[in-house]
Design a binder for these strands. Structure first.
Lengths: 102, 102
DNA sequence: CGCTGGTATCAGCGAGTGATGATGTGAGAG
DNA sequence: CTCTCACATCATCACTCGCTGATACCAGCG
């Protein structure tokens, strides 16, 4: 029982634009040009966020000629899901574990 | 299929201290004094974060005399877990859904 | 009551961070 | 080779947001 979520991943996903990117990438593998079209953000901005996502280990890059495709690493999301499930399960039993008033 | 995670909740959990608070509350129900001891943060700081967590619907307050106990709402965490599980499942099938290069 | 202790609210400060523009790099097309 | 296009990097600006101190509020106790 670790009952703790990786703060780094959550912090990275905390940005609305990055969460949007992740949601888009969960549907299909896309390259930067597609993401620029979908999100309306500037290419530079996207590239910055993609770097953050890459360094956090959430996405993988796959060069395809001049294009760079990004795809999610499902195991990271699955890990998050499991950690939150553990937290939820632990929280259900925590209602009775009330520490006494000092 | 919604395949999208609530950005507000993730944003709130993105802060390391708040994530720590949530992890602590998943173990036992605590009041502000306990959280001050556990985290070492100032009471004002804690109270601010608790307000954010409360407005995000992640925790509930339960007054007990002069003390205020906080407890997690497990359904929120369970919902997060499910949403991430959906994202992960969708991401597994997204590897083949590669949009053509423009 | 008045006092004490636990908690919430408010205003201000400063650091972290997202957005932008200019520029560099590298692969294909002509 | 050269030019173009996709993408990455760098420096900079602006702003959010977390932290802090002062203060107000509320409940119990004497």
């Amino acid at each position: 029982m670790l009952t703790s979520v990786d703060p780094d991943v959550i912090r990275v996903l905390g940005d609305p634009l990055r969460l949007r990117i992740v949601t888009l990438l969960a549907r299909e593998t896309l390259c930067t040009t597609h993401l620029v079209e979908e999100t309306g953000a500037k290419q530079t901005n996207l590239s910055n966020h993609m770097k953050v996502l890459r360094e956090a280990g959430i996405v993988e890059t796959e060069p395809c000629g001049r294009f760079t495709y990004y795809k999610l690493k499902p195991e990271v999301l699955a890990g998050l899901s499991e950690q939150f499930a553990e937290l939820a399960a632990s929280a259900r039993t925590a209602a009775e574990n009330k520490r006494a008033c000092p």
